[in-house]
Design a protein around this nucleic acid. Structure first.
Length: 297
DNA sequence: CTTTTCTCCTGTATGC
DNA sequence: TGCATACAGGAGAAAA
């Protein structure tokens, strides 16, 4: 599932293969891929045609291409969310299309297309204005797209204010895992890296935010940032030139997971079998010895 | 306003 | 073999 490191790998691929090119036409399959675009699929395709891609940017799990429309209008953002199963593929038009291609962008040069492929269609595209970032020291010179404004900075960007996040978490009446997954507090963390960060910190995800000390919350966030940096290094090694890849679990990093998906395997620290528990109709993985469960609320 | 639950979707794995 | 069911889960709407 694409979380921050996987999306960053895709962004780097777009910088390499798409930035600087001019879009000639866009073909969309079905309306669902554009359901978050205000004007619908036809408007989305129309407004992208003739645009030049200035850069590829990202915050958390949101990815966007900054596109300068023809005629000198203000740059807008083609916002891409990969959802659970979305992929962006850079492929020549003669390459047979995989299943579930929902969008194809053609360019003015002879280079390959950009294809958006999404089996479960939780992802989608939207073309939106760029607005000024809420963070003063933004590293997003074109601003951030409207659909991205409500999420917090991610742990790998300069605007990330860890002390501020800790203060917000302290005030929340919820568990630490819910807080980690809440993109409005800190973005980019999904189920995989939440479980990994909590395992590294030795904290059970059901612990109340308010019951953890600020240093303990800081350690969880530090581990989240660190595990995503490590995953990015691994994931960065796995994509080849014409394939902007999402490998489901970040390149080769799935070999390095200590908690997520490790049910029954021995904990790398203490040897106790990793347990799986129900959580928000999903699953959580943790070590029963290193991450003792809090008393029931 | 805050917090929780529900819904969207389909390929893969498992059980009877 | 065939069919039913569980599972994977990000995000936003809806409900509490």
């Amino acid at each position: 599932m694409p979380e921050l490191p996987e999306v960053e790998v895709v962004r780097r691929g777009l910088v390499e293969h798409v930035v600087g090119r001019t879009i000639t036409s866009v073909r969309l399959t079905g309306a669902r891929v554009a359901r978050r675009h205000e004007g619908g699929p036809v408007d989305l395709a129309d407004r992208l045609a003739g645009g030049r891609v200035l850069t590829a940017d990202r915050r958390g799990k949101y990815l966007w291409l900054v596109v300068a429309p023809p005629g000198g209008q203000d740059p807008h953002a083609l916002v891409v969310h990969l959802g659970m199963s979305g992929q962006l593929l850079v492929q020549h038009d003669w390459t047979p299309e995989p299943k579930h291609v929902h969008a194809r962008l053609d360019f003015a040069d002879d280079g390959p297309q950009l294809r958006f492929v999404d089996q479960r269609t939780f992802g989608g595209l939207a073309f939106t204005p760029l607005l000024s970032d809420r963070y003063a020291d933004s590293s997003h010179p074109y601003g951030v797209p409207q659909p991205v404004q409500h999420i917090g900075a991610d742990p790998l960007e300069p605007a990330f204010d860890q002390a501020g996040v800790i203060r917000s978490q302290k005030a929340r009446h919820t568990s630490i895992k819910r807080a980690l997954l809440d993109q409005s507090l800190v973005s980019g963390i999904g189920n995989i890296y939440a479980d990994e960060a909590l395992w590294r910190a030795g904290v059970h995800g059901l612990r109340a935010c308010s019951a953890l000390t600020k240093p303990a919350l800081g350690r969880v966030l530090d581990h989240a940032a660190q595990v995503m940096r490590e995953a990015l290094e691994q994931g960065g090694t796995s994509f080849d030139a014409l394939y902007v890849n999402i490998n489901g679990a970040s390149g080769y990093f799935d070999r390095s997971l200590d908690a997520y998906g490790q049910t029954g395997r021995p904990c790398a620290r203490c040897g106790a079998p990793i347990r799986r528990e129900e959580f928000m109709n999903r699953s959580s993985h943790s070590c029963p010895r290193c991450q003792p469960r809090p008393r029931l609320p």
